[in-house]
Simulated assay, not measured.
Amino acid sequence: MIAFWPIAPLLLAALPQTLFAVQYAVRPFGAGQWWRDRVGRALFNKATALAIVLDLLTMHVFSAGWPQWSFAAPEGGFAIAETIGYWYVFAAVVYQYGALVRQRHEDREARQT
């Protein structure tokens, strides 16, 4: 059984990271010509790679049998640092996706006025 709560932030980050990669790259969602810029290509590749890793982790967790819903506290300093790191990844992914959505919304409003 896989313990759910220690990896919960990574599982929660899978959806917004996948949505970011898709919305960043697909023209109907307001994507620019990201492939023409070195930083744009790097951001797309990083976003897609992280989305794949998080999506595969999510599929693995739920295909390996239902996770154990334990609230066991992490043991040791490394486990605590790992948990904090996972929550930081989650927060950064959600912030990144929110920033993209807000920027696209503001750009759309600016074009309409």
Rank of each mutant, 00 (worst) to 15 (best):
V93W: 01
R41Q: 07
H60V: 07
L54T: 06
A92S: 12
S63W: 13
D37Q: 06
P28V: 04
L19V: 10
A13M: 11
P9L: 10
V61N: 05
G65Q: 09
Y86N: 06
L12C: 05
F62W: 15
G40L: 04
G32V: 02
T48M: 12
A110V: 00
E82W: 13
G76Y: 04
G98T: 12
G30E: 11
A81D: 09
A72K: 12
A91D: 09
P9Y: 10
R102A: 08
W34N: 09
Q103N: 10
I7H: 00
A49P: 00
T48I: 09
L50D: 11
P28C: 01
W34I: 05
Q23S: 06
D37Y: 09
E106F: 10
F44Y: 14
W69N: 08
A21D: 00
G77S: 15
H60A: 14
P9N: 12
G32T: 07
A64L: 05
V53Q: 02
T58C: 13
P74H: 13
A31I: 04
A72W: 00
R102M: 08
E109I: 04
F90P: 00
L100I: 04
G65N: 12
R104I: 03
Y95A: 15
Q23R: 13
A42D: 03
Q68V: 14
P9R: 14
W87L: 15
A8T: 06
I52T: 15
K46V: 15
S63T: 10
V101F: 08
G98E: 07
L54C: 10
G85E: 07
V61T: 15
R27M: 03
L12Q: 07
I80G: 01
L15C: 05
D55M: 13
V101M: 10
V22I: 15
A99G: 10
F44Q: 09
H105K: 05
R27Y: 07
D55N: 12
A51R: 05
G65D: 09
I84Q: 08
W69P: 01
W87R: 08
Q68A: 14
F62Q: 09
N45D: 09
A21V: 06
L100K: 01
Y97P: 01
F71R: 12
S63K: 05
Q103E: 06
Y86L: 03
Y86R: 15
A13K: 11
P6Q: 11
T58H: 08
S63M: 14
G32I: 03
L56G: 07
W66D: 03
A73M: 14
T58R: 08
P28K: 03
D107F: 03
F29P: 02
L50K: 09
A14Y: 10
R104C: 02
V22P: 02
A79C: 04
A110F: 00
Y86E: 04
T83N: 06
I80E: 01
G40V: 09
L100H: 08
L15E: 06
W87F: 14
A110M: 07
R111K: 14
D55R: 05
W69S: 04
G98C: 08
A14T: 06
F62E: 08
I52K: 12
L57K: 00
A91K: 02
A51Y: 06
K46G: 13
H60T: 12
H105E: 05
R108L: 10
Q68K: 14
R108E: 08
P6D: 10
I84W: 04
V22Q: 00
